[in-house]
Design a binder for these strands. Sequence first.
DNA 1: GATGAATGAGTGTTCATTCAT
DNA 2: AATGAATGAACACTCATTCAT
Lengths: 214, 214, 214, 214
Amino acid sequence: MSDQLSDAPRARDAERTRRELLDVASEVFADVGYSGARVDEIAARTRTTKRMIYYYFGGKEQLYIAVLERAYRGIREAERRIDVAGLAPVDALRAIAEATYDHHVQHSEFIRLVMIENIHRGEFLRQIDTLRELGLPAVDTLEGILERGRADGSVRGDIEAFDVHMLISSYCVFQVANQHTFGHLFDRDILAEPTASRARAMLGDVVATWATAR
Amino acid sequence: MSDQLSDAPRARDAERTRRELLDVASEVFADVGYSGARVDEIAARTRTTKRMIYYYFGGKEQLYIAVLERAYRGIREAERRIDVAGLAPVDALRAIAEATYDHHVQHSEFIRLVMIENIHRGEFLRQIDTLRELGLPAVDTLEGILERGRADGSVRGDIEAFDVHMLISSYCVFQVANQHTFGHLFDRDILAEPTASRARAMLGDVVATWATAR
Amino acid sequence: MSDQLSDAPRARDAERTRRELLDVASEVFADVGYSGARVDEIAARTRTTKRMIYYYFGGKEQLYIAVLERAYRGIREAERRIDVAGLAPVDALRAIAEATYDHHVQHSEFIRLVMIENIHRGEFLRQIDTLRELGLPAVDTLEGILERGRADGSVRGDIEAFDVHMLISSYCVFQVANQHTFGHLFDRDILAEPTASRARAMLGDVVATWATAR
Amino acid sequence: MSDQLSDAPRARDAERTRRELLDVASEVFADVGYSGARVDEIAARTRTTKRMIYYYFGGKEQLYIAVLERAYRGIREAERRIDVAGLAPVDALRAIAEATYDHHVQHSEFIRLVMIENIHRGEFLRQIDTLRELGLPAVDTLEGILERGRADGSVRGDIEAFDVHMLISSYCVFQVANQHTFGHLFDRDILAEPTASRARAMLGDVVATWATAR
DNA sequence: GATGAATGAGTGTTCATTCAT
DNA sequence: AATGAATGAACACTCATTCAT
């Protein structure tokens, strides 16, 4: 009768149920979008019932928002862990470009959630009040590098962290977000070798040459 | 019997009905995605009835595929009209970058359709057999420029049209595709001034400096 | 432009179209019933269009009624061709029983139409005014045999042609009409050997023993 | 908590809803066939909504299958209640023939379901895995009688329970199944007097004379 | 004698959500 | 903390039929 698979105390089942719902919902929303997702399916892939989604989150929309918030929090934490303190500014830029490439490819579920949220014109993201409190660690890191670069003359003075971030982001997001249409039109898997490695190296090259151009 | 060139001859209602359905469907699918789109709503915005969607296209999916095909055809035609014959290779690259930026911003409906199709992992695009026959005029044009550039020494020899195309595309697509999440996080409308003009010029700069490096 | 497959004069195309529609409609109605039949499907299996069904018959119901009438006419004609004049009464009964068995098995399409019509409680059959004019040749033949049998003492005096006809019909109709449920429950194909031959012979035996019992 | 035996306890609404849907569905399917039946109409004749058909059965087809299964179960149970232990073999055969006649006439809804299922070539019946487990009580009973009859010499040795069952079934089914077409052609109601009584008695006579013929 | 275009009413099914305990 | 039963509105799709030539 008691849960045979778990050693978690009863008092923590609630938290576990919540987390399980979020885990499954993340997968499902990322897989088929907000409109395409079915509350029934999310529940079915869980140990609990559909009723719990309403019990814990209030509804499909709130569940989606919770998924979105958790996803962004995770990404911000990962950005905060980036450390390029020991590298020369241009090498640091190249390192960040390539690390960002890797990170995007490895976290396609998040990229898909962002795509989906953009399809919905950011209407759900806008409801997450605490999001901006998380800051933008990736941009802060870039700002530090640019400052060092400007100081030692290795980086041109007219570019901002926002610019670099958008350049890197756009390229990396594209690899994941548009892999299917772009890949189909060019008849190749752009995330498979040799295309992937070439694309990854190219980004570092693009950022480095542009940032150091006078 | 009836005038085939006149504006609304009875005998040509079929073509007009078909086109109207495609027009409205393009709007609706781009607006709310495939799953979010409602056949009823598409029909309601039309002079005909829902029944005609099934009469002419067979169903929601086939209508969506028809929308997708027409959208890609239109884009390919626009690409074919690009003329940079009179420009020096590097100027031509910069011109194409900026023209592509403008084109993406002006055709956000198409960008949204591409996003949506990627959310569906390109499963519908793959069903359009005639798509590849259209070629990739944008890439062909880039290839011509790169050849001229390599010949006159203004462009480095290790980059390909595919690379340039992906760099430009990723940046331009991002402006439209991720405008809502990115814009929200940076608390600005990235397609409005002054951000837009800066981003546009920056892309030309990125491409030019990278393509002409060493 | 002209019909390449036919040598029929233009003036007979109408009759041919009508007959083709009836042929296909017979198949489809017998196959899936009146409610299950689709006007579109009937037309699609024809050289003409759906519109012709309305042109020639007026609608689905009238087409079905026409199918039913033609089917009954065909059966009555076949019944009229039965000849047992040279046989002794009891042999004639046995011959008719077995011939009826064969005829039913060979004309399952007709049996199915009759089943379908009974599902509809004969509401369509009742609309065919000319049906009764065709008479009931099978019953007339049976009546003749019974008269001969009564006269020579080989057949009991208290049975009527109607009784014999219903006994034979019920048994033969059942073989075709209930073959699927009955066959499934007994895990055998009742129209395949050895069950079929045994059933056929048994019917003659049943009729003969019963008709000759004193 | 709630009284499980009371007439309509809340906690047992599920079973009641299910049964009510089955009751109404049996009527409707028997009335107009599978294709002719409307899910909307079935629901409308119920205290619940159309949605419950999908909640409890999954769809129109599964509801039909459930109706079919319940109908066959009911018939098998009725067959099991037949008791002819005290009768001499030939009297028992006659009793079974006449009881079967009565039963068929009284359960025309079941006969119609069987007709409908045969129109569909038994495709739904075949999906009911548990059907064969119910056995064939009617045939078992006949087998017992035939054994007794063979033992005391009152019944011929070359006939099997299957043969007798098919003879009786075909005749009884026909009375109900073909009443409309047959009745119309002979301009009489074959289930009304005096035809009905005559037909009923005749069946017993047919079976008895045939089974005892040497 | 023939036809492509069009249609209103319905057809089985699914949706996110709430009720009652 | 949890749940099985229930639901109305909507959903993609289909039907036999008619219009306009």
